[in-house]
Design a protein around this nucleic acid. Structure first.
Lengths: 203, 203
DNA sequence: ATATCACCATACGCCTCCGCATGGTTTTAA
DNA sequence: TTAAAACCATGCGGAGGCGTATGGTGATAT
């Protein structure tokens, strides 16, 4: 009896890493990265996996690296996008940064499991880059003082992050219009700009 | 051979539920509610558990109910607290609402696992009550229009929620002063008030 | 004092996952 | 075309969790 009835393409380490990322996105939990279910999903067995990876941790690391690379690429593209108005660029930047959190459970899943040091490290690099980029734009293009720019970037990002969390977990608490990503972005961005005249920016 | 060397108090269903909540808080994940580890933690065995509960789901439900009761109680106390200034009352209310998210991983853990309907339902009730309370205060005490009050309450809550998430997962991205809960609350609250003059509150 | 009930320990089968060991198959190269 | 290398299936043992069956121990009541 042959091991395989139909000819099937052989797998690479990248195939396994991609499947892990897919599972993480679909299930929204790190525990979804499990070898045997992934093997079934790929139409293979564990024998294949343990040829390409030492153990499960190595696969998780690969998935994290893939997610980080994709996120970083998306950010650098948004920064490089030579938009016209700085206000428009800022809005688009904020949209790019928080878009994934709205569309893709992966990021929220990782946030939830930042207990593992590798997860926390990847998250820290990605989010630091985002906050740096947004604060830099506010500082250079909108001429805000450094501290003020950082504070407002953090406010807007946290707002969007919390909103994404609520939108995914319990959408019913959000008003009709606000579960739309665009509206939420506009709201946060205008709040950021509107606070220009306002109170202390401490924090 | 006796089943027990030292006399130990017998357990109740409430004991198991409380242990489940403790585990959820300590581990920060719903998977921490597992019968056999909890039994070990309680110095008992599964035999005890299955006398008080039908299965694991029943225990999770009990833990969720306990969390919801505690959260609701904390909120109603804060609302009832007859403070002097409405501005102070608002700040304290916001602090109570988001304090747990900063001090206790339970809430963030539940948010992360809102895929399960029971979890989502409990979260929705708790967070709806919080937003209602804050929006009501803004509307009645600060004379904001209904929509505006709701929008700003949501902004402040999401900001705090996202900040709590970042503070727990990757504290390094927050500036020195901002990982302090008090400072974060002040910042969010003043941003909420400061936006009074500002741009569109849509959302 | 003994029968009854509430409570619990023990032991079992089942399931899912990890990781390894072994041998088989496919591809590549000489 | 044959030897080596790359790749994979199969089968095993182990760990840990769920749920059940069964019998024992403590309290309670009569």
């Amino acid at each position: 009896m042959p091991q395989r009835r139909v000819a099937r393409r052989r797998l690479t380490a990248a195939d396994w890493a991609e499947a892990a990322l897919d599972a993480l996105r679909d299930e929204g939990s790190l525990s979804a990265i499990a070898i045997e279910p992934l093997a079934a999903r790929l139409g293979a067995t564990k024998g294949s996996f343990y040829w390409h990876f030492a153990n499960r941790d190595a696969l998780v690391d690969a998935a994290l690296a893939g997610w980080e690379a994709r996120s970083t690429e998306e950010l650098t593209e948004a920064v490089a996008a030579g938009e016209d108005e700085p206000v428009v660029r800022g809005r688009e930047l904020l949209r790019t940064m928080t878009g994934l959190a709205h569309r893709d459970p992966t990021e929220l899943a990782l946030l939830a499991e930042a207990g593992q040091p590798r997860v926390a490290a990847a998250l820290e690099r990605v989010i630091s880059r985002r906050l740096d980029a947004l604060a830099a734009l506010l500082e250079t293009e909108l001429a805000l003082p450094r501290e003020e720019a950082r504070s407002r970037a953090l406010h807007a990002y946290c707002d969007q992050l919390g909103r994404a969390q609520l939108a995914r977990a319990i959408p019913a608490v959000l008003p009709e219009a606000a579960d739309d990503e665009e509206t939420a972005i506009d709201s946060a961005w205008h709040a950021l700009l509107g606070a220009a005249a306002g109170g202390p920016g401490g924090g």
